[in-house]
Design a protein around this nucleic acid. Structure first.
Lengths: 190, 190
DNA sequence: TTATTTTCTTGCCATAGGACAAGTTGCCGG
DNA sequence: CCGGCAACTTGTCCTATGGCAAGAAAATAA
């Protein structure tokens, strides 16, 4: 299970079988309970982990003090806050488990060792960064080009597990509306 | 001038002097008049260029048909629409010159040849992607954590040339408000 | 220069959406 | 099984923001 999951995550032409095994070996299994915080605002993140199962969300506080969900993480995704982790600055976000989760974690120091000793790893990393950039770019476009209602319908289609397992108020702030408005949109749809 | 500017843009440990010269040689000087479109919604972008002088903006249409400025480009920045250029899909954005501009352009086919023939170029490219990711992540956080007024003050401090040369209505939509509200904020500040 | 268009400001009005609160439901722990 | 808390819905009220339009100012063209 561990091997299968992580092999898929780290698949890259410049990472050979031995190197892959070395990377996989560096991962430790950890479990989180629903509600646990993986990262808290103000900390410098050392947390690098891959979700085997469960659901997480990241959120920030807006200028009125409200929680705003910035992203959801589910099956097999890498859960990190890039800014804090790689630029070593205090994060503005929190990351929280929304359900019990099973994760594979690498200690950040060990991660850096691997990053510098395994030739293809930085390459892999930057490819991942590129994918994240595409993801972010797309999302920030959608925030303006698609209405909250339609983005909800899209979320429902693409990531139904989020709608099933996350409290609706977190989804509401992710969509850029209040839980009240969201409730009314849901009523309208059904 | 060309050499100095481009050397700075392509500075990278894995790109040596000869390779740098080869890359620089691939750039053609072009000029744009104020108002010219570099990219139009629906096209697949072939446009890769570096600004020597002048100001550009990218914008999309929101779900009500309004222009929304998504980014500004000024001195020495690389002007591309990453999604369309690298994923070869029709873009949802437009890119437009806000002032007369001087640019250095590479034809996309030539760019791809260089990308594959020069060892350090993909590396350089992904590093650039990483920086863009940080930029985007930061900006999408600021949209929720900082009020329109404060983001304007920040823009005024960090990129005064934008405020000087761009019509205010484009800045307003960049800040996520209407030109009317923006006018009131400016009044309040002064 | 003058004419014409675009941009910016400002007022008025309308309204979508948020704040608040009450009531309901559902979940979790004891 | 019960008690308490969190989540969700729904109502009322209200305000910040947008739409619209008119006029001033600035930029552009002729």
């Amino acid at each position: 299970m561990k091997e299968e999951l992580l092999s898929r995550v780290y698949a890259h032409p410049l990472i050979n079988e031995d190197q892959l095994q070395e990377i996989i070996a560096a991962h430790q299994k950890i479990s989180c309970k629903k509600g646990d915080y993986i990262l808290k605002k103000g900390e410098v993140s050392d947390s690098y982990l891959i979700l085997e199962s469960g659901l997480m969300r990241s959120f920030a506080h807006d200028y009125n003090g409200n929680d705003i969900t910035t992203d959801f993480f589910s099956g097999h995704e890498i859960v990190i806050e890039v800014l804090s982790l790689f630029q070593r600055v205090p994060t503005q976000e929190n990351i929280q488990a929304l359900t019990d989760c099973e994760c594979w974690k690498i200690d950040f120091n060990r991660f850096q060792e691997l990053f510098h000793s395994i030739g293809g790893f930085p390459e892999w990393g930057r490819l991942w960064m590129t994918n994240r950039l595409f993801h972010f770019k797309q999302r920030s476009l959608e925030i303006v080009t698609i209405s909250a209602k339609d983005r909800y319908l899209q979320l429902l289609k693409e990531k139904p597990q989020i709608v099933q397992h996350s409290p609706l108020k977190y989804i509401a702030s992710y969509l850029g509306i209040t839980d009240t408005s969201f409730s009314r949109i849901r009523k309208e749809i059904s």
